[in-house]
């Protein structure tokens, strides 16, 4: 096994960040470095998770999809020609897998109720905390009334960050420059939904 020889060696990706780190991990993983692949999973599993959830999958199904996507990457490790495009590949593959499952299941899952139940309203906390929770609850409810596309875009831009805007744009088939304006419209919709909800 490679663990013995790699334990004492400096990893080429250890000091890198973002795309450079992921690309270096990809290359190392191709050469059989499992630690590099594990680092990719640890770094980018949250991205895959939120894409799956943003596509409307329940949490159990989303868990399976996260693992399915990483197994798919294992299979495609030697076929991905551009290691720097990994985030985009993960987003695209996750959306495709989520769509496949939803078509097979014959419908999408109603998320709002599930998410509403997860809001921790029973937490015995100081009054300002309770108020904050109530406000969160309403904002979260409003979030789930947004179009699927807005929910997905907002989640993606939250998780992927500005560094991966291009990957997000490509995966959503949007021109790069339209992400910002579209995000702005989604946020305006969110404001209206929230204000309608709270009556303020």
């Amino acid at each position: 096994m490679t663990e013995l020889q790699t334990a004492s060696m400096v990893k080429p990706w250890a000091e890198l960040e973002g795309r450079d780190r992921h690309a270096a991990c990809m290359l190392a993983a191709r050469d059989g470095d499992k630690e590099a692949f594990d680092a990719l999973v640890a770094d980018l599993a949250p991205l895959v998770w939120h894409v799956a959830r943003g596509s409307g999958l329940d949490r159990t199904t989303a868990e399976d999809v996260v693992q399915t996507v990483w197994l798919a990457l294992l299979r495609h490790l030697h076929r991905l020609t551009e290691p720097r495009a990994l985030a985009g590949w993960l987003i695209t593959t996750t959306r495709r897998e989520a769509n496949r499952i939803q078509h097979r299941a014959g419908g999408t899952v109603e998320l709002s109720q599930e998410m509403a139940e997860r809001t921790p309203t029973t937490d015995p906390s100081p009054e300002h905390e309770v108020l904050r929770t109530e406000r969160d609850h309403q904002l979260w409810s409003a979030f789930h009334k947004l179009s699927q596309r807005c929910q997905e875009l907002l989640r993606l831009t939250v998780i992927a960050g500005r560094a991966e805007y291009r990957a997000v744009a490509e995966a959503l088939h949007m021109p790069h420059g339209s992400i910002g304006p579209t995000r702005g419209r989604c946020l305006n919709n969110l404001r209206s939904l929230y204000d309608g909800d709270s009556g303020s």
Binding site: F37, D38, V41, A42, A45, P46, W49, H50, R53, R59, E63, V66, Q67, W70, L71, L73, L74, M115, R118, T119, D136, L139, W140, F143, L154, R155, V158, I159, L190
Partner: peptide
């Protein structure tokens, strides 16, 4: 705020990273 809610109310399930690393 959206970022905070997404991370607090819909977090990655505990242990999912480890289960995925095992699966691969």
């Amino acid at each position: 705020e959206v970022a905070r809610l997404v991370n607090e109310l819909d977090p990655l399930p505990p242990g999912l990273v480890e289960r995925t690393q095992f699966a691969v």
